[in-house]
Design a protein around this nucleic acid. Structure first.
Length: 899
DNA sequence: CCCTGGTCCCAACTT
DNA sequence: GGGACCAGGG
């Protein structure tokens, strides 16, 4: 009973109420993760529940991994079997990889394959989705100026998240634009089906549809999972909600944990009603409130609570903490965004130094976070941290898997797995260039459209029917061969190996006897580790908690029996499936990393980069090596190509948060679930936070306020709010004056302490105060500049020996009331700021060059006109340049002058 | 056909 | 600051 003693009465009740529906309303910092993990441990240790019959759903891989580790610590060593802790999306992928073919419908034509996705489906990411929409719009001849692909995509996603199909969207559309979108939605779906692809939304939708329509599959999962936990319940959308209902089955052993004040994903379809109406869905539900906050000081908690109390749509709660008082909420008003970032860097440098000195006395490791509304704000903070020589980590933004060289290789793998994936095919068909140009691709696309084939199919058809010039056909054949060889390699039947002597190559080809042996091994493996384990077993996560291959040992018989009893087609097919590229199937079969090496080698990808001989090219080569390593790790975990690709598709930017890092920069959304001793909440300006796109609708503003609440409650000891009086919206534009965020005014003034220099006088350029007492009534440009000179400098700053005054910008002497003053201000900080020039008309009368005339070209210098073709501006003239030879130039464009 | 450089337009959060 | 797109030159 030891670990239960660490819980307060409410937490304990939440842990011990194991049966029937439970809603745990867990305020920020109230020990939510602790309750979930203890609850799982309690079920296993005290209730004798089999670990593998517990399913916990989270939103991020990070949360799942952490939960798994903590459960492991509590019940470690007790059993090889593990509870299933997974994100919604990963769970759905695994459900679909196992049984999606149960959704297929027989083809009308006998002998034809059934219609619908196969297990080899690929996952389309945001940019793939955009490409599909663009191409569909092009085919329908729609103007992408009036209706941007982006807008179409977001409407399609909206419809999916509300479980509307194209027909339903069409029926409820009240304007021609929505009708058009419904039409596009329909076409989009057809394209994805043709490509055997699913987008992110589909993963949830199709898994839900599968459980809904295929009773045997649903029954299997209902038998399999007896206890269901859902984290971040306030952020579930409609498909997730329905999935939950179906997994809860008749038993209703569902435990939802959430906080309506932290619902920040309504734009992704999250429906706050799910949490507000849990009691309606499950009338026998027990509601437990966790209101003791263990994280923050009273000042922080009070400030955050007061802000969020301005919302109407909430259940309301009273969070309390035993950490009385605490440091006041800091507020710093910077003259501009750059200064705001320097202030944060300076403050963090000091904080880390002091914490370093105090380290001997023990305590929490010093960690600080800078939070912002939009990822583009990170740039200024990164620059400031670098100037202070501080090590930091940025969460989110550009992901490894979004880099072009990585996307290229992943696309190759996707095509090899599923050649019908036309989006990936288009990406790699001429990457690196192999002579397949625009006109060739156009021809194939037209053929695909005419025949209803995928691009890959049309490509084969074009070769067969010799529809293109010989050169193009040869190029296409070489591409076809490349993909075919890679596929053969994956299947273990590839004969030719580059860079290998024929002898070793032959040695690598499995003999019929070897193949037979491998097949037997595979069959044996299938027996001891049934298909469920193949679908759910070795998986993409390093965390052993995810590896629940063994979890099926006890329940496999039941599972398989159920499948065959009910006659689920996939189970039958599984028995006779071809040899997968698994390591245990025989050493001759290649892993994903070997496949990648083969591709890189055969395409000459790295050789071409090496030839570029630029730092960028070498960093891209490094990235490719990293990808090969990742694939090797994947192989070591026993994953197949499918699983490697699923991992690549589902890994999120936010998953790379590293708690060992002392300084973390990230968006407010990415910060959910984390805590830091010191937190900066930046950019508190109307239009930025709350964001301009939310300010029209009260519900949206409430969500921004919840986001503010989430940000504030990340802070344990100190919270600092900052704002820039002038901010540049785009890199080069004029800085714009900002209005302080409404959320600033919602923080009780007595809790606030102003940081930086005290400002008094008022200057016309600043805002003139909205006035909560104790807040600056006006902005004094002259005195508000954050001064470095009078602060301690970080050690690294001084280390280079440059006199401080040389490096450090001086304060602006004038208010920003004219464009010249602004330019001067930026010049004083060594920043470029160009005053826009009035365009000057080009002098006319220098056109109409004739043969024999001397002309001057900006690049080629002086030359003699040799020949003239055509008339007017369009005329092409050929010029003889002494150093460059003959050049044919269009007179209108070439900047020729009389010499 | 391929590469480059200029221009235009954009810029919210994320599985 | 930067990605997408286009047109020109090689």
């Amino acid at each position: 009973m030891s670990f239960l003693d660490q819980l307060n009465p409410q937490q304990r009740e939440a842990v011990e109420t194991t049966d029937g529906p439970v809603l745990i309303l867990a305020g920020a910092g109230s020990g939510k993760t602790r309750v979930i993990t203890y609850r799982i441990a309690y079920l296993i240790e005290h209730k004798g529940v089999m670990p593998e019959s517990i399913l916990a759903m989270t939103f991020t891989n990070k949360a799942a991994a952490e939960m798994g580790e903590r459960v492991e610590k509590l019940v470690g060593g007790l059993s090889i079997a593990k509870p299933v802790i997974s994100t919604f999306h990963s769970f759905c992928v695994r459900v679909l990889r196992r049984d999606i073919e149960a959704l297929q419908i027989p083809s009308a034509t006998p002998g034809q394959p059934p219609i619908g996705h196969t297990k080899k489906f690929v996952i389309y990411d945001e940019s793939d989705m955009q490409s599909v929409v663009k191409s569909v719009m092009k085919h329908l001849g729609l103007d992408d100026k009036q209706l941007t692909p982006r807008a179409v995509l977001s409407r399609i996603s909206w419809a999916k998240n509300h479980m509307l199909d194209p027909q339903e969207l069409y029926l409820q559309s009240a304007d021609p634009k929505t009708e058009k979108i419904a039409h596009l939605f329909e076409e989009y779906r057809k394209e994805l089906r043709k490509a055997n692809a699913l987008d992110f939304d589909d993963l949830l939708l199709e898994a839900t549809r599968l459980l809904k329509t295929a009773a045997p599959v649903r029954e299997y999962y209902n038998r399999r999972f007896q206890y269901l936990l859902i984290d971040e319940y306030q952020d579930t959308n409609r498909p997730q909600y329905e999935l939950m209902r179906m997994l809860a089955g008749e038993r209703h052993n569902v435990c939802a944990v959430g906080d309506e004040d932290q619902s920040i994903y309504s734009w992704r379809g999250a429906d706050i009603r799910n949490i507000l109406e849990f009691e309606k869905d499950f009338p026998e539900a027990k509601i437990i409130r966790l209101e003791q906050n263990y994280r923050s000081t009273q000042n922080i908690l009070q400030a955050a609570s007061t802000v969020v109390a301005n919302n109407i749509r909430r259940k309301g709660k009273n969070l309390w903490t035993s950490r009385q008082g605490g440091t006041k909420i800091g507020y710093y008003e910077a003259p501009d965004g750059e200064n705001e970032a320097l202030f944060a860097a300076d403050h963090i440098a000091k904080y880390l130094r002091e914490a370093g000195r105090a380290e001997h006395s023990g305590g929490e490791t010093p960690r600080a976070a800078v939070l912002y509304r939009t990822n583009s704000q990170s740039r200024l903070f990164e620059e400031a941290m670098r100037r202070y020589g501080l090590k930091y980590k940025v969460v989110g933004g550009f992901s490894f898997y979004e880099r072009s060289e990585i996307k290229d290789m992943i696309s190759y793998l996707k095509v090899i797995q599923n050649p019908d994936d036309s989006i990936s095919l288009l990406r790699v068909i001429n990457t690196p260039t192999r002579g397949i140009g625009k006109s060739t691709i156009d021809t194939i696309e037209r053929l695909a459209l005419e025949t209803g084939l995928s691009l890959w199919g049309a490509l084969g058809e074009a070769i067969r029917r010799q529809l293109l010039p010989q050169r193009a056909l040869a190029a296409l054949k070489s591409f076809q061969q490349l993909i075919g060889d890679a596929q053969a390699m994956l299947a273990g039947t590839f004969v030719e190996q580059l860079e290998e002597s024929m002898e070793t190559a032959v040695a690598r080809i499995p003999s019929p006897a070897q193949l037979q042996e491998a097949q037997t091994l595979q069959a044996a493996a299938d027996d001891s580790m049934p298909d469920d384990a193949a679908a759910f077993g070795p998986n993409e996560f390093e965390n052993p908690a995810f590896d629940f291959g063994g979890a099926y040992a006890g329940s496999d018989e039941e599972g398989d029996e159920a499948d065959s009893r009910a006659g689920v087609p996939p189970a039958v097919e599984r028995a006779s499936r071809p040899l997968p590229g698994q390591q245990d199937a025989g050493a001759t079969l290649p892993s994903t990393s070997e496949l990648l090496k083969f591709l890189i080698d055969r395409t000459g990808y790295i050789k071409l980069l090496e030839a570029e001989d630029t730092p960028e090219a070498f960093s891209r080569i490094e990235n490719l090596r990293e990808l090969v390593n990742a694939a090797a790790d994947s192989r070591d975990r026993g994953e197949t190509l499918d699983e490697f690709l699923d991992h690549a598709a589902l890994i999120a930017d936010t998953d790379d948060y590293d708690e060992r890092s002392q300084i973390t920069l990230m968006s407010l959304h990415a910060a959910k679930g984390l805590e830091f001793p010191l937190v900066f909440l930046s950019g508190l300006e109307e239009g930025l936070f709350p964001h301009s796109r939310t300010m029209l609708q009260p519900d949206d503003v409430e969500e921004e306020r919840r986001l503010c609440y989430v940000g504030m409650t990340r802070a344990m000891d100190q919270l600092i709010l900052t704002r820039a009086v002038y901010r540049r919206r785009y890199g080069t534009d004029l800085p714009e004056a900002s209005v302080p965020s409404r959320f600033l005014e919602e923080v009780p003034a007595p809790l606030i302490e102003e940081l930086g220099r005290r400002r008094t006088a008022s200057v016309s350029t600043g805002y003139v105060g909205t006035a909560a007492p104790g807040r600056p009534a006006a902005y004094d440009v002259e005195r508000s500049h954050y001064s470095y000179e009078d602060e301690d400098q970080s050690a690294s700053w001084k280390r280079d020996g440059t006199p401080a005054s040389r490096q450090k910008p001086t304060a602006p002497a004038k208010p920003y009331n004219s464009i010249e003053n602004i330019a001067e201000f930026f010049a004083s900080r060594g920043k470029k700021f160009t005053i826009p020039k009035t365009p000057v008309e080009e002098p006319a009368g220098k056109r109409g060059f004739r043969p024999g005339q001397k002309v001057r070209h900006p690049k080629y210098g002086e030359g003699t006109v040799y020949q003239r073709e055509g008339e007017g501006e369009e005329a092409k003239i050929t010029v003889q340049f002494p150093r460059f030879g003959l050049k044919k130039l269009v007179e209108k464009y070439a900047q020729l002058e009389r010499a």
